[in-house]
Simulated scan of single mutants.
Amino acid sequence: MKKLFLRISLLCCLGLTMAVSSLSAFEPDILYKDQVAVLMYHHVSDTVKGPGTISTELFRNQLSFLESRHYNFISLDEFKAYMKGAAIPDNAVLVTFDDGYESFYTNAYPVLQELDIPGVSFVITGTIDDPQKGTTPFMNREELTKLGKRKGFIELQSHSDSQHEKQNGKAYLTHRLQLNGRTETDAEYKSRVTGDAVTCRTKLDSYAPGSGDTMAYPFGIYNPEAITAVQDGGVRYAFTVMPKIVTRGSDPMRLPRLNAGSPYVQPETLHNMIMRRVTAVKDARGEEAPLRETLEQLGGELYKDKADNQLGMNYNGTLFKFSPDKASVTRLSDNAAFTLDRPLYVEGRRSYILLKDLERILGITIRLDTDTGTYTTDPPTESDSGTET
């Protein structure tokens, strides 16, 4: 009787194991290949609340969830090698932090250590002499020195030395400043921006030799002049706030990132955010495209205006509003009207638009990126609608 009971128990356990194994087989190990989802964070705090701040628990849960879904976290060195042609793991993710807040050292770094996940901290080096001067403390010399010893695992990179500022609402990095009642000359502008990049690299090099060739643009704002100026200062890779995924064809000076550092981005939300950039919902070679997914993959968003309940689009800071019958679109900045060749229509709870209509409205060329299977376009040559980074 005992032998029979043991035999039945063994069969039940075996059956359960096989069932679990069968279920796990439905979770794909390969979500995407030969591309990198670069995540952007700012502040990790358990006391401060805000749109750019997440709790330590949420940060840990996000990364743990991605690990459970077969994502592979890579270092900045691996990312640079990938940009030069080297292979990377499937489902690659790079974790980055802007500003150099002290919370990176006290809250984020311990989680990265615990999970053995490398990361990048883009530091405003002008804060090092007085790290407590702002409302949010920055990392001090002792903390930067300790992180510098973990180079290869934690990278200290540039968020500028003194260019994370605005004058009359315009970013230092991309505009001529007003100096004693006159406008900065082209030569003065170039000298300031290039000199700042050199200063930032020099300061970072004292903590982690060889650092500073990678930058996150202050506020996510850049233009061709700024790109040239920081390149002359030794910057070889630069990150924007454009919400796309990095492929081998990405411009190394206009690299996109996904904003994971919002309290509203739950672990599964982050997974879905990444997958929307790597999974085309409808073949872009056809005439139509799903509007929401296509816009998100291009770095825009679809929204509903609460004032009049009308559908709208936001692309690179420019707002558009659909007419009530969805047969035309108005660009709100100048009231330019676009009549659609085919009105927007809904199928399976998705809104579809003709690709040629969307191209005409946004003034861009949309194509299928064969690396990622997504709708894509070239990033703008300049951006003046970034976020506080």
Results as ranks from 00 to 15, higher is better:
E155N: 15
D129P: 02
Y32C: 10
K149S: 13
V241M: 14
L362T: 02
G50Y: 09
Q297G: 04
D325A: 13
N168R: 12
L298P: 04
G85C: 05
S45W: 01
T214Q: 00
T389S: 12
T381N: 12
K33D: 00
D116H: 13
Y375W: 12
Y32G: 01
P380N: 08
K49G: 03
G363S: 06
G210P: 07
A229I: 03
D98Y: 00
E225C: 02
D186N: 13
R192V: 05
G220D: 03
A226P: 02
K49W: 03
E102W: 06
E188G: 07
L156C: 08
S323Q: 14
F320E: 01
A327I: 07
A238S: 05
G233C: 11
S211P: 09
V36C: 03
N309F: 12
T376W: 14
Y264F: 09
Y172K: 05
H175I: 03
Y207E: 02
L144N: 08
T214R: 05
I221Y: 11
K149D: 13
F73G: 00
Q132F: 12
Y172M: 07
L94T: 07
L58E: 03
M275H: 09
I353G: 00
R367T: 14
D232A: 15
Y32T: 05
L39N: 02
L204I: 05
E382T: 13
V48R: 13
A171Q: 10
V38I: 14
D205P: 09
D283E: 06
L332M: 15
M273K: 15
A327Y: 06
G233H: 05
Y264G: 12
S45N: 06
P324E: 12
L147D: 01
R292Q: 14
T56S: 14
P343S: 15
I274S: 04
T376C: 09
F104R: 05
P118H: 10
K33M: 03
K80W: 02
G212T: 06
L258T: 04
G85M: 03
L10D: 03
E301P: 00
I88F: 09
L144K: 02
T106Y: 03
V346N: 15
E27R: 13
D29W: 08
L16Q: 07
D378P: 02
N168F: 11
P380I: 06
V346G: 05
I245L: 12
K166W: 00
D334E: 06
L295V: 09
L270P: 01
E184G: 15
L332W: 13
F59Y: 09
I154L: 15
G210Y: 06
Y32V: 04
G233N: 07
L94I: 10
H164D: 14
Y101F: 15
A37T: 08
R150M: 08
R150T: 12
H159G: 11
P137A: 12
S45P: 04
A81Q: 10
S121M: 11
S333Y: 12
E296Y: 13
L147W: 00
P379Q: 04
E184F: 11
V111I: 14
D161Y: 13
E165N: 10
Y109C: 07
G312L: 04
T318D: 06
L147I: 08
